[in-house]
Design a protein around this nucleic acid. Structure first.
Lengths: 249, 249
DNA sequence: TCTTGCGGTTCATTATTTGAACCTTTATTT
DNA sequence: AAATAAAGGTTCAAATAATGAACCGCAAGA
């Protein structure tokens, strides 16, 4: 891998941590030599992507991405366009709703609207959503061209819970259902006790760019309710796409 | 410079452009060989920091920074804490207000609240604010330790307009005034026809982390009004710091 | 049809990255 | 308070990755 790739992966490691981390630990997590990790961190810090706590000497994500994100959202206001729909859906179904976007080969959560209920599903910002084990991932995959689906299915599938579907053939079946129905349902495949429904956000070309998902505690749902939630999610996803792409023409 | 530094500088070039750019052009702007630029772009794209338009083959800023920015702001909600104060100040003085943060060796605008008036100053997101030629820069510099001020004054000072102050001694004087008064005033030093007042956002340690600035057309202001605006800016900056740092203790 | 300019690629040369070992500082244990 | 451990940070010869002049193929324009 190129130096740049390694440095950006290091940045990913730091970003997915949620708290400050020391040099030795981050080097180990990113599978880099300590000296190498240090050099990378210094470079990243120079550009503001990482910052070091003056007191603890630990490293954390810097402020540079905030500036870049502002610029990006000025031209592609995906989150700000979607936010009201996410909120409306969360209010309507009373569960946690999250929006993800495909970037850098991964599907990542970029916005969350928490359920108002006390017992709710917590979704972390930043953690990548595995394609085979989340409703969002399935919704995204299902609307990809067949060859890209096959390529994705060839990659090893990690097990996240007792219920994770890791057989390519089984995933293929889920994808077929999803494509037919318009939204996906994932039952505790990522985390036990959580059931989700998700629909893709589709560009005018038909290519998926992200997914909208509702995550609910299993205790509060049954098949019928999930199908209803799925329908609503699908409608909201379509509205987001229409608003986002419609306004640009 | 390290490969990483060069790649991040390339990203900077792309971010400050505001529109898509071709390979040859971006290579020239970033002072890189075309082959090198391409390799960097491919790496950056793999991680989502850059994306290539499928149709035009041109490159633009990707969506990865949006994800990172969300994570950063979860822990350090600088913009969201400051936004209401920025808005309030903009409403109060009726001019464009912008908030900047020091990152990666530069002061960059991360939030803007436009004036409601038809004739208003336009502030671009992302363009770095030169320390010697903007009110924000002066406000930031003025509250730095003496040795850091001197280091900053040793760097060459670019001229941006006929009124830009480029003499170290003259800048030193402006900084003294700023430190004494608590806010800076910059008269057309960056752009003709624009006068600004800015106050630093100070961390509890007394170290500046950014600046809050009001930019107004010269046609609409006089010395008295700017002093009044400066006072209000200073008060708003102090409120932001208090809210931001106060809530974390 | 010919030319120009662009995106993209190649491969021998060159310069940078790498990491084991080392030093330094800080925190913990004895 | 001395000893120990553990972390941050640095060095320099060896290893590896980055570099760029020249190249290809394609599309737009003359």
């Amino acid at each position: 891998m190129s130096t740049i790739g390694k440095a950006l992966s290091l940045l990913d490691v730091i970003s997915q941590l949620g708290k400050d981390i020391g040099l030795t630990d981050v080097a180990r997590l990113a599978a880099l030599d300590k000296a190498t990790a240090r050099r990378f961190l210094v470079e990243l810090e120079k550009h503001g992507f990482v910052e070091q706590d003056e007191e603890t000497r630990k490293y954390r994500l810097g402020a540079a991405p905030v500036r870049l994100a502002r610029i990006r959202q000025e031209r592609f206001p995906f989150v700000s366009v979607a936010a009201p729909f996410v909120k409306a859906l969360a209010d309507e179904v009373g569960e946690t709703v999250h929006l993800s976007e495909f970037t850098g080969g991964r599907l990542s959560t970029i916005h969350v609207e928490d359920s108002s209920q006390a017992h709710r599903v917590i979704v972390d910002l930043g953690t990548p959503l595995p394609f085979h084990a989340t409703a969002s991932g399935l919704a995204y995959l299902a609307f990809l061209p067949a060859d890209e689906i096959e390529r994705a299915l060839k990659r090893p599938m990690e097990r996240f819970s007792a219920e994770t579907v890791t057989e390519p053939e089984a995933v293929r079946l889920l994808l077929k259902e999803t494509a037919k129905r318009g939204f996906s349902i994932n039952q505790q495949g990522f985390e036990m006790g959580v059931i989700s429904a998700a629909a893709p956000i589709l560009a005018p070309s038909g290519k998926p760019v992200g997914a909208l998902a509702v995550a609910a505690p299993t205790a509060r749902t049954n098949k019928t309710r999930m199908l209803d939630i799925g329908q609503k999610t699908m409608a909201a996803a379509a509205s987001i796409a229409q608003k986002y792409y419609g306004a640009k023409a």
